[in-house]
Nucleic acid binder design. Structure first.
Length: 516
RNA sequence: GACCGGUUCGUCUAGGGGUUAGGACACCGCCCUUUCACGGCGGCAACACGGGUUCAAAUCCCGUACCGGUUACCA
């Protein structure tokens, strides 16, 4: 039998990291086994479901490269089937009508009320008086229009059990499971029923989901049994927790929890996918970087962990705003991935920052016509900024970058004349040495006289210049770096000069703007 | 409360009877270097606790503690 798995989020918000990881594991398992990865939107809670969430989930999955293979199933479309199933169980005596009036609960206190009720020691799960109502009376009351919910009639004694692919044998006494509601009194099918019906209908063979569903699974197995259908294999995933080991939630933790945050923050999809894969699973080897193909090849359910993982970030520290390892992994991808793969991503980033120039894709490097997107960037009057220059520059500066954003932020000076100066860098490398204010324009004149502007020759000129001024080479280099790039860090200054080219180097060395 | 899970460096984790308990991130130090968040070398740092079983326990068993999940006419 071919494997069929599904990712089944409810569209009640952005795509949460934990959900994204569940989607990834489902996808990996499907690919690993030559199976099919499906997507089902669990929108039965109409009040909380939004189209925007659905869109955001779809976007997130596509960003991660997890493409579902058949049409997306919307659970709400199957409501009639769910209702029919509940009626069937009712007719077969496996479920019963509960005429107890629905309790009114305000959303905020639901959780507390549940916990409070549960605290009332040892409640008997079978004490519902309607459980044994005669068929005749039940039918009569229903026919009279009295509202009722349909509950599954769980047997008095026995237990549900299943072999979880991650957690092993799971057992639960029937007496610990209530007669769960299948159909609300307003005719609305409830989650556990809907999930089972849809999983059966979609021929799902493996249900891979968070371990917060572990107790639901017992309820669902009860439904499978009532329906006479063999349940699929279950694999429950450990949860991803906040640094305080509590639940990771948007309300408490904000944007760090949302997948789109990472897309918007300049993460490489492959890097984040790699990071996510290692949150709760490992191949059992001393290796951190895995391509998608490698993940698929190595993935297996039995290497999924049983303990929850902490997503480690520091809310008030911009440097550690998200998990350090995710940041590191992204940097690792940026500096080691093939240029062919990186370039389009950098291009997209520059485009969105209005720094992109069409000439970066020209093999003829003579074009200086500014494109529409780069209209507010002054044209560069030098004929050597085509594709080759772009590729070399990206390759040069990527080594100290953490996210794609860095190309347009720290790296802005490579692509625009309009860049900011980091005040710390200015203080440390420029204003601390007032002589530089006249020296650097002077150096510009020397550069202007140079025939060919290559690293070796630049080095000679700068060294001679520093010697002449009786100062350390570093003073000149660091001053020039700050003036030319706006920041204090970067690649070898000789490469920076060469990359920027003579014209731009000269222009910037003469500029007094940073001094003000 | 009840039921179900879990517990190896700060974090992600390897290891499942005999290991100097390994790797990665973070942090610290040294080196490279004109600076640097690149790179190189090194350091700090963990088997929750208590009992058993065993010649031998991080590893198997029991208990305790702590953490998490669930306990809805939410999903």
């Amino acid at each position: 039998m071919t494997t069929r798995v599904r990712f089944a989020p409810s569209p009640t918000g952005y795509l949460h990291l934990g959900a994204a990881r569940a989607a990834l594991y489902n996808y990996l398992y499907a690919k690993k086994t030559g199976g099919t990865f499906l997507l089902r939107i669990e929108d039965t809670d109409l009040a909380r479901s939004t189209d925007e969430s659905t869109r955001s989930i779809l976007e997130g999955l596509s960003w991660l490269g997890l493409q579902n293979e058949e049409d997306v199933v919307f659970q709400s479309d199957n409501a009639d089937k769910h209702r029919a199933t509940a009626q069937k169980l009712l007719a077969e005596g496996k479920a019963y009508r509960d005429f107890t009036p629905k309790e009114q609960t305000s959303d905020k206190t639901v959780k507390e009320a549940i916990v409070e009720r549960a605290r009332q020691a040892d409640k008997n799960m079978r004490d519902n008086s309607y459980r044994n109502l005669s068929t005749v009376e039940s039918d009569t009351r229903a026919a009279n229009g009295e509202p009722y919910a349909i509950r599954l009639k769980v047997a008095e004694t026995g237990k549900t059990s299943f072999e979880d692919a991650v957690y092993g044998l799971q057992e639960r006494e029937y007496s610990d499971t209530e007669d769960l509601v299948l159909l609300r009194s307003d005719g609305h099918p409830l989650y556990n029923l809907a999930v089972v019906c849809d999983d059966i209908e979609m021929n799902i063979t493996h249900v891979i989901r968070g371990q917060d569903h572990l107790t639901n699974t017992h309820k669902q197995i009860l439904i499978y049994e009532a329906l006479g259908v063999t349940p699929p294999t279950f694999a429950h995933l450990p949860l991803i927790l906040a640094p305080n080991k509590g639940k990771l939630s948007k309300r408490k933790h904000g944007e760090v929890v949302s997948l789109t945050t990472y897309r918007d923050a300049g993460f490489i999809p492959a890097a984040f996918r790699n990071f996510l894969a290692l949150m709760g699973w490992s191949a059992g080897e001393e290796k951190e970087i895995y391509s998608l193909d490698e993940l698929i090849e190595k993935f297996s359910l039995d290497h999924i962990h049983r303990s929850n993982a902490v997503f480690n970030f520091q809310e008030n520290d911009p440097r550690h705003w998200t998990d350090d390892k995710a940041l590191w992994m992204n940097a690792e991808y940026i500096r080691t991935m093939s240029l062919d793969e990186l370039l389009p991503l950098v291009k997209a980033e520059l485009k969105s920052s209005k720094l992109w120039r069409e000439e970066y894709e020209d093999d003829e490097s003579s074009s200086t016509t500014p494109s529409a997107e780069a209209a507010d960037t002054p044209p560069i009057q030098e004929g050597s900024f085509g594709r080759e220059w772009f590729e070399r520059t990206v390759d040069l500066i990527r080594h100290r970058f953490f996210t794609l954003k860095d190309f347009s932020a720290q790296g802005r000076a490579y692509f625009s004349e309009d860049y900011d100066f980091d005040p710390t860098a200015v203080a440390k490398n420029l204003t601390k040495f007032p002589d530089l204010r006249t020296w650097l324009p002077e150096l510009a004149e020397r550069f202007g006289l140079m025939e060919s502007f290559t690293e070796a020759e630049i080095e000679n000129v700068v060294k001679a210049f520093a010697e002449e001024k009786g100062t350390k080479l570093g003073v000149i280099m660091n001053g020039a770096r700050t003036l030319l790039t706006g920041v204090a860090v970067g690649p070898s200054m000789l490469s920076v000069f060469e990359t920027l080219g003579k014209e731009r180097s000269v222009l910037r060395l003469r500029s007094q703007v940073a001094w003000n």
